[in-house]
Simulated scan of single mutants.
Amino acid sequence: MSIEIKEITNKKGLREFVKFQWKLYSGVDQFVPPMMEFEMSTFNKDKNPAFRHSQARFWMAYDGDKPVGRIAGIIHGEESKESKHIRFGWIDFIDDPEVSKALIGSVEKWGKENGLVKIHGPLGFTDLDFEGTLVDGFGQLATQATMYNYAYYKDHFEKMGFEKAADWTESRIKVPLGDKELEKDLERKANLVSSRYGMHIKEFKSGKEILKYAPQVFEMLNSTYSHLYGFHKLDEEQVKYFIDQYFGFVQKDFILMVVDDNDDVVGFAITFPSLSRAFKKARGRMFPFGFLHVLKAFYKNDTLDFFLIAAKEEYQKKGFNALLWKRLYWACNKHKIKQIFSGQMLEDNTSVNNLWTKYDSAMDEEIRRRCFQKAIGGDAA
C-alpha cells in the first residue's frame, strides 16, 4: 500500500471528509452519523466564530484513489500560547498503522512549524465539539453528541507514543417510572432546599421564553467549566453561534433551570430527546427528508440525552441536585422517558458523576473515551 496525504481546501473536499466516516462505519449499529449540515457549518470559516482565534487544516489519506483516513489539525489561539499544544480531531482511519501515522504526522509537522511542543486529541475547537476516542463501550449506541470508533484506534495511538491525558465516562440509567415513594422523597428534599436557600425551578410557558436565559447559561458554563481539561471560554460570538444552533429547537419540559429569588440562574441542565436513531434513519442529512425522522424522535421518545449541566460553585453543595432530579423525574413521567444518557463526564468530575450513582444502570458495560497526548516528535515524526 502506498499512502498519499492530501490537504482538503475546498467545500467539495470537506464533504468527502465528512462522508468518509459514514463509509468506514457503514453497517455498524452503534455508530451515529453526524448531520452533514452541522459538520459543514463547523468547518466553515464564515459561519463558525471559532476561526476568529483558531486555525484549522484538514487532511485525507488515500491509497490510490480510495480514501483510507482523515484528520483535522487545530491551533487554538489561547491554548497554543499558554501551553504550546496543537490539537487533532475528527480522526478516522482503516486498521493500518501506516495510515494513522501519516495522518498524525501531518498535524505534528504543522505544529512544529508553529513552534508547538505537544499534540493532544481527539478534540474540537471547543468543548461542545466532538472529543475523545472510544476505548470502552463498543457495544453501546453513541449519542448525537459523541463519536464512535473502532477498538483498534487505541492501539494505534499507543504504538505512536501517545499517553492518556484525560478520560470521559458516560452513565445510562433506568428511570423508575411511577415510583410514588421516590416522587415523595424528591418532593420533600426539593421543598427543603427551596425554603432554606431561596432557589427553585424556573417554569417556562414556551420554548421562546428560554432564549432570554441562554446568555446566563453560557456565562455560567464559562465560569464553572474553566478548570476542566481542554476547556476554553467561549466569546460572545461563539455563545450566539451555539444559542442559534441548539436553543432554536428545545422542549421546555426538558430544559431544567434553577433560579434564585431574583430570577438569576444558579444552575441548569440542558437535555434533549435522543436523536441517535433518528440521525441513523436520516443517514446524516437533515434535508430533504431527514428532518422528518428528527421531528418524530423529538416529540415521541423514551430516551433522554443530557447535553450540558452546571451550577454556581456556591450552590453545588446546597441541594441543587434535589431540585434538578425532582423536575427531571416529573418530565420523565409526563413523557414516559424510560432511560437517561448522561453524556460525557470527565472521570474526576465527582460533583457531576455522583448525580448518577444511586440509580440502576441501563447498560452492561462501561463507556469511556480518552484524550491522548504526547510530545511532538518520536515515532510519528
Rank of each mutant, 00 (worst) to 15 (best):
S2K: 14
I8L: 08
I8P: 04
T9P: 07
L14Q: 11
R15D: 08
F17Q: 02
V18I: 14
Q21W: 04
Q21F: 03
W22V: 05
L24S: 03
V28K: 15
V32G: 01
V32K: 01
P33H: 02
M36F: 11
T42G: 05
D46S: 14
P49Y: 05
S54L: 10
Q55W: 10
R57F: 11
W59F: 14
M60E: 06
K66T: 14
P67G: 03
G69Y: 02
R70E: 04
R70N: 03
I75H: 03
G77T: 12
E78Q: 10
E79Q: 13
E79C: 04
S80I: 01
I86H: 04
I91C: 13
F93V: 05
D95S: 15
E98D: 10
G105I: 04
W110Y: 08
E113K: 11
G115M: 03
V117G: 01
I119F: 02
I119N: 00
L123S: 12
D127W: 07
D129P: 12
G137L: 07
Q140R: 15
Q144W: 10
T146Y: 04
Y150A: 14
M160W: 12
E163P: 03
S171F: 13
R172M: 10
R172F: 06
I173F: 02
I173R: 03
I173L: 14
P176T: 11
L177E: 14
L177V: 06
G178C: 10
R188V: 12
K189C: 08
V193I: 15
S194W: 01
S194V: 05
S195F: 08
Y197I: 01
K202C: 01
K205R: 06
K205E: 13
G207N: 07
I210C: 01
Y213I: 00
P215R: 06
P215D: 02
Q216N: 09
F218Q: 06
E219S: 15
M220E: 00
N222M: 03
Y229G: 08
K233E: 12
D235H: 07
E236G: 09
Q238R: 13
Q245M: 14
Q251A: 02
K252I: 01
K252C: 02
D263K: 00
V265R: 00
V266E: 00
G267R: 00
F268S: 03
A269S: 13
I270Q: 00
G284W: 07
G284S: 09
R285F: 15
M286E: 08
F289I: 07
K296A: 10
K296G: 05
A297S: 13
K300Q: 12
L304S: 05
L304H: 09
I309L: 08
A310V: 01
K312N: 06
E313D: 14
N321M: 07
K326N: 15
R327N: 14
L328F: 06
L328R: 11
W330P: 00
A331S: 14
C332M: 09
C332A: 15
N333V: 03
N333C: 07
K336N: 13
F341G: 11
E347V: 13
T350C: 06
L355K: 04
K358V: 11
D360F: 06
A362K: 02
M363F: 10
M363E: 15
D364H: 09
E366A: 15
R368F: 08
C371D: 12
C371A: 14
F372R: 02
